[in-house]
């Protein structure tokens, strides 16, 4: 495999949706896209594993969807504008999903946003993160 270095590789907690990610996540994201239709949302919720079989995703991607492991989905090529459609299908708010991805409760995440959001200082480069932990 060719590993290309990118100028954004050093940014922590960030999965730039480049063509490599997009290629890996194509079927995962297109599954999410199918949830724009009400009848598909119903079918998915009625039989998640069966519904996911229609899409040639990896088993790991299917498992991440069924576990609602929001961060894992992103790591496996999911794009947030797509995976958030699963959240909408579940009736979850966006802040719930965002909180899950950074290991915070929805309440704490909402509070952080009200206080001006996560600062840029301490979150620009991987070297600033001790043990991969975001600075709030």
């Amino acid at each position: 495999m060719v590993t290309t270095k990118h100028d954004y590789d050093d940014i922590p907690g960030t999965y730039v949706f480049d063509f490599d990610k997009s290629h890996d996540g194509y079927h995962l994201n297109m599954f999410c896209m199918s949830l724009l239709k009400a009848e598909n949302r119903k079918a998915f919720l009625a039989d998640e594993a069966g519904y996911l079989q229609q899409f040639p995703m990896t088993q790991e991607q299917r498992q991440a969807v069924m576990d609602r492991d929001w961060l894992r989905m992103i790591q496996l090529g999911g794009n947030i504008y797509y995976t958030s459609k699963i959240g909408a299908t579940d009736g979850r708010s966006f802040q719930y999903i965002a909180g899950k991805m950074c290991g915070m409760s929805q309440e704490d995440y909402a509070k952080m946003m009200l206080n001006g959001g996560r600062p840029a200082d301490g979150n620009r480069s991987k070297s600033e993160w001790e043990g991969e932990k975001a600075n709030g």
């Binding site: 907690g13 999965y15 965002a98 909180g99």
Partner: peptide, 13 residues
């Protein structure tokens, strides 16, 4: 930023 462990980032300046 809407995704990942760094979600919620804001840079007012």
């Amino acid at each position: 930023q809407l995704h990942g462990e760094r979600a919620g980032m804001i840079n007012r300046e």
